[in-house]
Design a protein around this nucleic acid. Sequence first.
DNA 1: AATGAATGAGCCTTCATTCAT
DNA 2: CATGAATGAAGGCTCATTCAT
Lengths: 193, 193, 193, 193
Amino acid sequence: MLDAARTVFEKLGIEGASIREIARQAGYTPGAIYSYFENKEAIYGALLAESLERLNAAVDAAGDPELEPADMLDAKASAWFSFFATNPRDLDLGFYLVQGMQPRGLTAELNYKLNDRLHDALRPCETALQAMGLSADDALRENTSLFAHGVGLLLMQHTGRIRMFNQDATLLFEAYIIDLVERLLAPSPPGRG
Amino acid sequence: MLDAARTVFEKLGIEGASIREIARQAGYTPGAIYSYFENKEAIYGALLAESLERLNAAVDAAGDPELEPADMLDAKASAWFSFFATNPRDLDLGFYLVQGMQPRGLTAELNYKLNDRLHDALRPCETALQAMGLSADDALRENTSLFAHGVGLLLMQHTGRIRMFNQDATLLFEAYIIDLVERLLAPSPPGRG
Amino acid sequence: MLDAARTVFEKLGIEGASIREIARQAGYTPGAIYSYFENKEAIYGALLAESLERLNAAVDAAGDPELEPADMLDAKASAWFSFFATNPRDLDLGFYLVQGMQPRGLTAELNYKLNDRLHDALRPCETALQAMGLSADDALRENTSLFAHGVGLLLMQHTGRIRMFNQDATLLFEAYIIDLVERLLAPSPPGRG
Amino acid sequence: MLDAARTVFEKLGIEGASIREIARQAGYTPGAIYSYFENKEAIYGALLAESLERLNAAVDAAGDPELEPADMLDAKASAWFSFFATNPRDLDLGFYLVQGMQPRGLTAELNYKLNDRLHDALRPCETALQAMGLSADDALRENTSLFAHGVGLLLMQHTGRIRMFNQDATLLFEAYIIDLVERLLAPSPPGRG
DNA sequence: AATGAATGAGCCTTCATTCAT
DNA sequence: CATGAATGAAGGCTCATTCAT
């Protein structure tokens, strides 16, 4: 059933994915959906939960444990970035969660769970940052920036606005990481906390 | 009439803003809308065009012409960033342009115009980057990154996901600019183009 | 449901028959219609298909198989003519097929089927004409003329314009058949193929 | 203004000819139309009146006065037939009058006038028929049949159904006239009034 | 667990017509 | 005479959701 939803969703996008269509794809009638999900938003919740599992799997699989912290940072960050860059529908889901999802569809519990799983996917980067010598606070801050940077690039790429700038999102993300590593490993210049 | 659209839009969001609702808010019947706009998308087009004008006004007003390039960069970037940070509905509009707007509503001409106006708002940063010694290509690349970074932060802040990280979007954006300036002014380390 | 459509259609004509009205007559809400038909044109398609079946039934039932070809021609032609003369709504449907029906509502397949069924209803006349000694080409031509004549009379009668001429459509159609038979059975005069 | 209506009407057909469109074509705004016509139907009434004038002009111009009655019949009948065959929009108008026009649009007076003008266009045929020796009653009957035949052929041709029969409407009409003349000039067989 | 017909509310849009200016 | 903004009614259609079976 979730597979059907995902399939429809991949084919028709988040706007075109009606209950009817999902049911048809699943070989059921519309009413049957409601045996599995409370409402339409709940489907997205489930879809998103599953998407985040795949995201975590991708991040977990990335990077040899023996890697240097800086390389680990690169590996883990590239993992979540390329997961979304490669799977635009997962990015859609993420944006949908973030933008349009009605509070009704997401129980507080599920919302927490989803947030936690997103954090889980980003934590390896934070860990690597700490391993590079950053305090917990600094690591959090840098990780937030890193995430924001990636999200911005993904959004631009996803909507075609990045071609507008004649740039390649993945290259720019890589460059950001390189600059970041450089900055962290360099002797901090005067005047920076 | 545009005011009515903006009001409804602010109240109900971009999805909930139906022609009926906009007409009601404006004190008209739905048919009357079509004396002013060809269709629903055209309303957003007009709204967006106006939003981009305000954006450009904000950017143009920012920064004393006498400023050093680095400070000018800061001023101009902060201008567009804070415009969107302060006016979340304009951010919504921007995201809508970027994500959902149907080609039908936007004539190719208008689409170009809107893109141009967005570029206009970002160009001062690029100019400042070149004034700091970057080549045209490098300036474009850095400007793209800068924009992406801001967009990512704005998105996170806008959707409440930034509090999740206990960070302040504006501070993070400022930090990015500082690092950027530092990096550009520093003697480039070996191995970086 | 089809009955409702037919009823509304009889009451309000083909132009006045809205989905809303059909639904109301059927005791349903508009949306319910779409469980039965893909769109409005499909309703007419179904209505027309059924009408053509009744037409064919009437034609098939007409004329003792033992009849002479000339009498069979009379019987079959009178059958389709009187079907439409007696059931003006079926005539309306036929005109609608012929004039206004959008390609969207009628799949190519259905369109073919409808055309075929109309041909089926006219074929017995053509067969009788051939039995009277006409070549296939001549039979087709005479049958086409016969059909056109009937259609013209039906249209005039239907729209009240025939009273304008103080004539009775059925009598005129009968007279046409009589003349036709006479002409075909008579030794062809010189100069006519 | 009528010209504008006719132009729009020729371009967009009877369905697509909205008041807005007519006004635009005429260089006016919709409201201005109502300075000239009571309502939309009145426009069609005027259009039709004018069409019938052109029809009569065509019929009047046809056939040398010196012609034999039989040839005159051919000339006059061919005139009205080819008028409609050549100007399908006039045929549309005629069908519209006959099928869809609301009583509101046509004052009784105008209706009479239109009927009279149609009769005028057909009268030369009737006169020719009488000149060939038919009684007034017989001439009326034959003329009615002739008109019906032509109308049937025109309808079939107009709607593309005549190609279905692989026939040429004009040829079939000509053949009808030839048969008619032949029949009338031949010694009437026994049993035909 | 599943059906599937049905609802009800809503969507965007069109259009003849009116009327104060 | 003409404007043109506005109306009001209607149009076809979509969709999440419900519920008796």
